[in-house]
């Protein structure tokens, strides 16, 4: 359906938006961003693809079912804090660890970040599930 220009642009825009959404997710803890907006941005990348091409090709691009995405996200969010419970601490007590990659380049990762990844996946999955099912209605003339 989309025009040639849109299709061509989408090919380049899609990875850029996806990268940007992951960037939003990761920087969210210190700058504006986070799992919610990151997931929405990622969803918009797929929606752009759907507008430019069609639903089947978007589904191919997704590679997994949107329900799988939702479920995985929820599991990650739920599980992010399981081992803190084994430690005897309340659920959702955060744990942090510093990954030393080189002497001056280190990465601080923690359970809230894992939780945020879960949020990202759920938001992405839900948005795609609903938008794709709506486009499904459109295909059939009523």
């Amino acid at each position: 359906m989309g025009s040639l220009i849109l299709r061509k642009a989408t090919r380049y825009l899609f990875p850029v938006i996806m990268m940007f959404s992951i960037y939003l997710l990761l920087r969210g803890h210190n700058e504006p961003g986070g799992g919610f907006v990151g997931g929405l941005a990622a969803a918009s990348a797929f929606i752009l693809n759907q507008l430019a091409f069609d639903v089947p090709s978007t589904k191919r691009l997704m590679n997994v079912d949107s329900l799988t995405l939702i479920g995985t996200g929820l599991l990650i969010a739920l599980g992010s804090s399981v081992f803190t419970m084994l430690d005897g601490q309340p659920y959702f007590s955060s744990h942090w660890a510093t990954l030393r990659i080189t002497s001056d380049w280190q990465l601080l990762i923690g359970t809230p970040l894992i939780f945020d990844i879960g949020v990202y996946l759920v938001v992405l999955g839900v948005t795609l599930a609903i938008l794709l099912s709506i486009s499904n209605f459109r295909k059939s003339p009523s």
């Binding site: 919610f36 948005t127 609903i130 709506i134």
Partner: peptide
């Protein structure tokens, strides 16, 4: 979270109405 949930809700109502309409 209200923004995102509101969006999800609106979208779901839309799907619901579309199927009811059909």
């Amino acid at each position: 979270t209200a923004i995102v949930i509101g969006f999800g809700l609106t979208a779901f109502v839309l799907v619901l109405f579309l199927s009811a309409h059909e």
